[in-house]
Design a protein around this nucleic acid. Sequence first.
DNA 1: GCCCGGACTTCCACTGGGCGGGAGGAGCGC
DNA 2: GCGCTCCTCCCGCCCAGTGGAAGTCCGGGC
Lengths: 258, 258
Amino acid sequence: MAGRSSTPGRSVTSRALAILDAFDSSAPRLTLSEIAERSGTPLTTAHRLLGELADWGALIRRSDGRYEIGRKLWDLGLLAPVQLELRQVAAPFLQDLHTTIRDTVHLAVRDGFSALYVERISGRESVPVVSQVGSRLPLHATGVGKVLLASAPLEVVEQVLRSLTRQTRHTVVDPGRMRRELAEVRRRRYARTSEEMSPGAASLAVPVQVERRSGPVVVAALGIVVPPHRRDLPRLVPVLEVAARGIGRELARTRDFR
Amino acid sequence: MAGRSSTPGRSVTSRALAILDAFDSSAPRLTLSEIAERSGTPLTTAHRLLGELADWGALIRRSDGRYEIGRKLWDLGLLAPVQLELRQVAAPFLQDLHTTIRDTVHLAVRDGFSALYVERISGRESVPVVSQVGSRLPLHATGVGKVLLASAPLEVVEQVLRSLTRQTRHTVVDPGRMRRELAEVRRRRYARTSEEMSPGAASLAVPVQVERRSGPVVVAALGIVVPPHRRDLPRLVPVLEVAARGIGRELARTRDFR
DNA sequence: GCCCGGACTTCCACTGGGCGGGAGGAGCGC
DNA sequence: GCGCTCCTCCCGCCCAGTGGAAGTCCGGGC
């Protein structure tokens, strides 16, 4: 018996959502007790809520008792604007780009202080690449990141400059130098990196812009990852630009104005 | 005043989920009152729950007041097994396949009585195609559908045979004929269609199998869509088979046994 | 400018759905 | 068999959730 005692004021909904929050890419399959612990929910409560979520199809219970994200959430996720408005539109362009240059191709947006990878195309032979669709990488150490950072609001830039974490020995961690690089990116309209995120990988990226009444807005970054010894990178800039412009134009057409 | 009166016995969680259910591909952006109506929730209740869902990031509220699916649900959806265990693994193979044959390439699984499209790759020039990632099409009118149906449990086959809806004038709607076609698919290990789903498109598909203790299990179907006048389709079967086998082998390695 | 209608937001008293400790069961390793 | 962990079920208390009503905001017609 005894009524509630812990965390008063937590709504039912927030508890249910906390349970969903227990899942992340490092833990996509969880047992009841793991979920209860990770979400800070009493075991019994977690059990009941999990039952409801599983009935609806948000989660599925595997035969070994562990829970996974269900198809219904997968479906819903596909309705998010990143998918519906950006990824869908951009995919064929990335496709063509990949066919042409045969390296790994990326599309990313800025999500707070990270680059969020929205799409990635790579054959089975290309350079090993860290990013996956849905993963987040630092803005200062990747090509797409630098492009996104170069067009981010001042306060974001300042915050990022204050925390330039070293990823490899080539990572730019000096705020002054990064500031100059960003200016360079704005001027040249593309960014490069060489082994700044992971050894053995260089990258090249350009902005994807949409025209608004107030002028062009950078909505995403398009990038490629190549082996660092490739010396002809700048030659690829126009190829990326053509694709980026295509995406931008298509976005302007598709996107429900505003 | 006055307590609840409508639908007693509905849990809070089920109401919140009903609200998410209001969103689908034909209605990915909704106003408060639309959501209230579509979910059968009183306006006020919908309003409160939407607030909670938006705070958490399941939904986002646009500046025009309408709600959309938020990034957090997109993220969660990426953790679903279809994505993590199937799509991720299969993508490079589809990629290679597309590069080789240059037509639209598909990967689908059976979801109840439909084929659920998990991945699609097409350049910008190929045949116009109905399917999109996340969309569902009938099992009896598509190549991947027939492959999936051919290996489905008996009761699924019977149910589908009872409701062969006509999509075009070439759709097979005779249960007897479909039954023979399925036997043929099982024997030959591939399926064909020609303008049975949409005019101007033919398709070819093969099963993707994973070896289990109990023998091989069909977990997905791999297909291509081509113009109907192409007469060399059977020549492409081995190409599809190689890719399908590659996916199957990789799945067996990756997939957490069971 | 004014009025009207529709869509959204805030308020608040009542009450039944949610809560979670505890008991009991299932499965497993030793 | 025994102890351990993990899961499921039970049940009475009580506060979070509920939703009608009233208030506010906005845009468009006249």
